[in-house]
């Protein structure tokens, strides 16, 4: 492999997707699982005793400032492949085995707990499902719309082309987040988690399809005067068929890469909306939503740093997709003739 960075990022993202897929197996708790006696709990320490891994026990030293102190020498054994809450592995196999657990009332908080004592670690894993899937669903949508709009605009030209391009300009003339908020404000607040997710994808796709459509339009314009397209025209094939049969195969790799360059925008858009309380709603977990808890002054003043971890997760994921997008772009369009940003 000539591109070590691309490979490294691919492996990293592969691990992320695996973790997200097995989130319910790896995480000890469900996202809404509260423990009101253990709010803002710091990450629990682990130690070895009698050949077994134990999780440190803590006591609440100062209920006002939520300061926890270790109870020296006390701990609960960590049990691997233990029975916990029920779930379906990969959405299919019903089971209740979890990678690790501790017996109640002790709790294992690898990455601390939040304001209602929910496990930050478990919520991060469940939140990964949203951030990692939203980009893929999103680019599937903008590939379809970007190709249809761009391809037809480029192929037919004239009024249709003009209308499409003016409309894209209109959408792009509004600062992205402003439009995102206005669009979100249009829809009702009370939606099921699935509906919300879908709504966010649609809105973000609406904001992102223009870039892809423009690239495809440019390529279609240059393709439509090529001989094989003209030959197909002379043979009387229908425009839709020509666009599908002759244009699509030629622009497909560009289409995929152009669309995938907007994955970070989807991840960031969802996170921003959820962060503002306009996206995924409690008690579901999403990285942006989790981060909104960190806006509390208490968090800053009392140094509950672990509540900032979802931000780090977004950051790492977006970096990975940015690097990957650039690597793909360099492979498909090394001279950056069509794909640049």
């Amino acid at each position: 492999m000539e591109r070590p960075l691309g490979l490294a990022v691919l492996i990293l993202l592969g691990c992320f997707y695996l973790v997200a897929l097995f989130a319910d197996f790896i995480s000890p708790y469900t996202p809404p699982d509260q423990s009101l006696q253990k709010t803002y709990h710091p990450p629990t320490a682990l130690f070895w005793e009698n050949g077994r891994l134990h999780v440190q026990r803590y006591e609440l030293a100062d209920p006002d400032d939520m300061v926890y102190r270790k109870i020296e020498g006390e701990g609960a054994p960590v049990r691997f492949f233990a029975r916990g809450h029920d779930y379906r592995l990969m959405g299919l196999i019903p089971t209740d085995r979890h990678l690790f657990l501790v017996d109640e009332p002790d709790r294992i908080y690898l990455l601390g707990s939040d304001e209602t004592g929910r496990d930050n670690f478990s919520r991060l894993l469940y939140g990964a499902r949203i951030s990692l899937s939203i980009g893929l669903v999103g680019i599937a949508i903008i590939m379809v719309f970007g190709f249809l709009a761009g391809g037809l605009a480029g192929y037919f030209g004239g009024i249709w082309d003009n209308l499409t391009m003016r409309f894209i300009e209109l959408v792009m003339a509004v600062p992205g987040l402003y439009l995102l908020l206005v669009l979100r404000g249009t829809f009702p607040d009370e939606l099921s988690p699935g509906q919300t997710f879908f709504l966010i994808v649609i809105i973000l796709s609406f904001l992102a399809w223009g870039g892809t459509a423009r690239i495809i339009r440019g390529m279609t314009l240059s393709l439509r005067n090529r001989q094989f397209v003209m030959a197909a025209e002379v043979l009387g094939q229908s425009p839709l068929k020509i666009v599908g049969k002759h244009i699509l195969p030629n622009v497909f790799s560009y289409l995929v890469v152009a669309a995938s360059l907007s994955i970070p925008a989807f991840i960031l858009g969802e996170a921003a909306l959820s962060f503002l309380g306009l996206g995924i709603q409690e008690p579901s977990a999403s990285w942006g939503l989790m981060l909104s808890q960190a806006q509390d002054m208490k968090v800053f003043m009392l140094n509950f740093w672990w509540l900032l971890l979802p931000g780090a997760a977004i950051f790492v994921t977006v970096i990975a997709f940015n690097v990957l997008g650039d690597v793909f772009r360099d492979i498909v369009d090394p001279k950056q003739k069509f794909l640049n940003r």
Partner: peptide, 17 residues
Amino acid sequence: YAALSIPEFFLALLALF
């Protein structure tokens, strides 16, 4: 890459922190 990828609101939180 890092600067490009860090969400503004996360950075804003870090700044407040």
